[in-house]
Design a protein around this nucleic acid. Structure first.
Length: 268
DNA sequence: CTTTCAGCCTGACGGC
DNA sequence: TGCCGTCAGGCTGAAA
């Protein structure tokens, strides 16, 4: 499922094909996504040029001459560069055709993603926390924001107002690498341990980007290939199996309605 | 203010 | 074999 690394992989893959290219046509076959695709978006974007493509949190932003398209891959979405004649597959919902002949297909079985248009700033981007891979983010910031918070540390680091882009997979992995139990109250963790957690969040996200992202079921990059980081996962999806460090049995608990796997021996 | 939780959606999987 | 219930997950907005 696309988290920050998978969105970054997608960005890198699509950018060369669409940057500075003029839009020939946008086709919306299924506009019923997480939010309805902006009404009339097809005629709005036709003839405009893609000035820049970027990522903020798990959103992709395509900046046009006037206004921008905001794309979210939800949980099962992917964007692929295909040829103009490529067959439409089941769950291909949107196609962006460029004048240079490239086509971008948006595929999303669960339809939790979105594809929105706005002339100004998108509401979705208004109240986001810092980017985890930027210098704006570190363990000290986590420690400062965690003061007096009773929430468990795992849902805390997954809160977009604290830091963006840390989803269930990478939260679990970063906590394991840091030796911190996911259910420890956020406000009761030392500054020193937060420094460790902050750097492990950066490391695990950077490593996942290098491996092409994590593919559990749906994710493929813009060429249709899976990522390889799942081979590196120490705890996510391994509840009941042996810890890679101490061989103890990994525990699977629910925090904030999310499955949270950890090692009771290695994580305190 | 903080925290919790329903709802959106499809496909995979287990039990019967 | 097929039907049904459950789960997975990001994000929002309402409720507590």
């Amino acid at each position: 499922m696309p988290e920050l690394p998978e969105v970054e992989i997608t960005l890198k893959g699509i950018k060369p094909f669409i940057k500075e290219q003029k839009i020939n046509k946008l086709i919306v076959r299924q506009g019923s996504l997480r939010w309805p695709v902006t009404d009339g978006i097809e005629s709005i974007v036709e003839g405009q040029t893609v000035i820049a493509v970027s990522r903020r949190a798990k959103y992709l932003i395509m900046q046009l001459d006037r206004g921008s398209m905001l794309v979210h891959l939800g949980m099962s979405g992917s964007l692929r560069v295909v040829s103009a004649e490529a067959e439409w597959r089941k769950h291909d919902h949107i196609e962006l055709q460029l004048v240079n002949g490239a086509c971008l297909r948006y595929h999303d079985p669960r339809r939790f993603g979105s594809w929105l248009w706005s002339l100004g700033e998108h509401q979705q981007l208004a109240h986001l926390g810092p980017e985890p891979l930027s210098t704006d983010f570190d363990g000290t910031l986590l420690w400062r924001k965690a003061k007096a918070r009773k929430m468990s540390v795992k849902p805390f680091i997954m809160d977009n107002k604290i830091v963006v882009g840390v989803g269930n997979i990478y939260a679990a992995e970063a906590l394991f690498r840091s030796g911190i139990r996911p259910d420890r109250p956020a406000g009761k963790i030392s500054k020193q341990r937060y420094e460790l957690l902050g750097s492990h969040i950066k490391d695990v996200l950077a490593a996942a980007i290098e491996q092409g992202g994590t593919t559990l079921r749906d994710f493929v990059n813009s060429s249709g290939e899976p990522g390889y980081f799942q081979q590196t996962l120490a705890v996510y999806g391994r509840g009941g199996k042996g810890c890679i460090t101490c061989a103890g049995i990994l525990k699977d608990i629910r925090l904030g309605q999310r499955s949270s796997v950890f090692c009771p021996q290695c994580q305190r």
